[in-house]
């Protein structure tokens, strides 16, 4: 039973990962920006599925909230604000796309060589562990959000606070950049 569950988990990851790849490929090649955004949404949901199948429940839900709930909506707003239909671009790709495609393929081949060495080796059987003084009274394997919270706010409080300042700056910057001239 446990073995079956494990193989199901691995297969779920593969399914979500391949779907995410398909969505990403469609996003790059699709002609209309709205289709690209929808493919982006699909890809983000599949990546969230990948997170969930890797026992990162909190991050999976956060991914759905942040991307599907926030970023994709922003993209859709801008796509509808910026009238894209008037371009009727026949040639959606950049003028240097041939050289770029060659460079990308060369990179893929190089990395494939790296991957060939360590192909599908054994993985660590452990789930998340916290430092013992942080993990007091917590079932780390089953309380993912609490485990992340303790790790984040105990060890990485400063990056977290810096991120909040960055978000504030981004908010102000976005308002300044996008506001109309006459106001």
């Amino acid at each position: 039973m446990e073995h079956q569950l494990e193989s199901l988990g691995r297969n779920l990851f593969a399914v979500f990962g391949l779907l995410a790849l398909a969505g990403a490929a469609f996003m790059v090649v699709s002609k209309r920006a709205v289709h690209s955004v929808l493919a982006f949404l699909f890809t983000m949901l599949c990546v969230a599925g990948c997170y969930l199948s890797m026992d990162a429940e909190f991050l999976g839900v956060a991914q759905i909230l942040v991307y599907a709930g926030g970023i994709v909506v922003l993209f859709l707003f801008v796509v509808m604000l910026v009238e894209l239909t008037k371009y009727k671009e026949k040639d959606i790709f950049h003028t240097q796309s041939r050289a770029a495609a060659v460079a990308v393929i060369a990179g893929v081949v190089a990395f494939a060589g790296v991957f060939k060495h360590a192909f599908f080796g054994p993985a660590s059987p452990e789930a998340l562990v916290l430092r013992p003084e942080l993990a007091q009274g917590l079932d780390v394997a089953h309380q993912n959000a609490q485990a992340i919270a303790r790790g984040l706010f105990a060890d990485y409080l400063l990056p977290f606070e810096i991120l909040s300042v960055i978000l504030l700056v981004a908010l102000v910057g976005a308002v300044v950049l996008a506001k109309t001239e006459r106001v």
Binding site: F13, G17, V28, H94, A101, F115, F120
Partner: peptide, 27 residues
């Protein structure tokens, strides 16, 4: 247990598609 290399492979492919899109799209 999902093997680390499978995840790395998927993530590598996603990154490649992303960088290909950055390089070849004009929008």
């Amino acid at each position: 247990m999902i093997s680390l290399n499978a995840v790395l492979l998927i993530s590598f492919a996603l990154f490649s598609i992303g960088i290909a899109g950055v390089l070849i799209r004009r929008n």
